[in-house]
């Protein structure tokens, strides 16, 4: 289940870069990869044939719309005990991929996986790794080179918000995209 859900999101996003300004190389590959996928929104992606060398183009015709010249929040959030990239996070990650490819084409990137404080230390380290790995796979699906990305889990060791309620926990269950 998890895997297929993730796959659908990636397939959804594959054609996106073509519509929102990416490096020409990555964009071309991704566009080809989108063919034949059965996810929702794929049909609309077919209409997105904008120029790949125009990083200022606002949004695409696909599922993800963003301004590639606006730096995105380098952070996505997860549901409790889940490493699944939800729709909101997919949007943010797509924006990150587009922006990084356009504006930070060389930097090494660490993807940190974090958890809320509930549950055991070791389980959360594993869950944080799954989250970081899921973000890496998504970004690679958006055309980023796997060699630039490194997944590191911090489990529940580095909360963003140091309080102990649902609001804090929802912000602490996150993936961080750290540009070096």
């Amino acid at each position: 289940m998890k895997r297929f859900g993730w796959l659908a999101v990636v397939l959804l996003s594959l054609g996106l870069l073509s519509g929102c300004g990416s490096t020409p190389k990555g964009g071309a590959d991704d566009q080809a990869g989108a063919d034949g996928s059965g996810g929702r929104g794929v049909g609309r992606l077919g209409g997105s044939s904008s120029s790949l060398d125009d990083p200022s183009r606002r949004g695409g015709a696909g599922a993800y719309r963003y301004d590639v010249n606006v730096e995105p929040e380098h952070r996505v959030y997860f549901d409790y005990n889940s490493a699944l990239i939800n729709d909101k996070s997919a949007q943010v990650l797509a924006h990150n991929a587009g922006w990084i490819l356009a504006h930070r084409p060389k930097v090494q990137i660490t993807i940190e996986g974090h958890c809320d404080e509930r549950g055991t230390r070791e389980f959360n380290l594993a869950l944080g790794q799954q989250r970081a790995d899921a973000v890496v796979r998504f970004l690679v699906g958006q055309g980023m080179e796997a060699g630039r990305l490194k997944a590191v889990s911090y489990g529940k060791e580095r909360p963003l918000v140091p309080s102990h309620d649902d609001s804090a926990w929802s912000k602490n269950r996150r993936g961080e995209i750290v540009l070096r």
Partner: peptide
């Protein structure tokens, strides 16, 4: 111990 190198822990 635990390793995630094969794709998951």
């Amino acid at each position: 111990f635990t390793l995630s190198m094969d794709g998951n822990p």
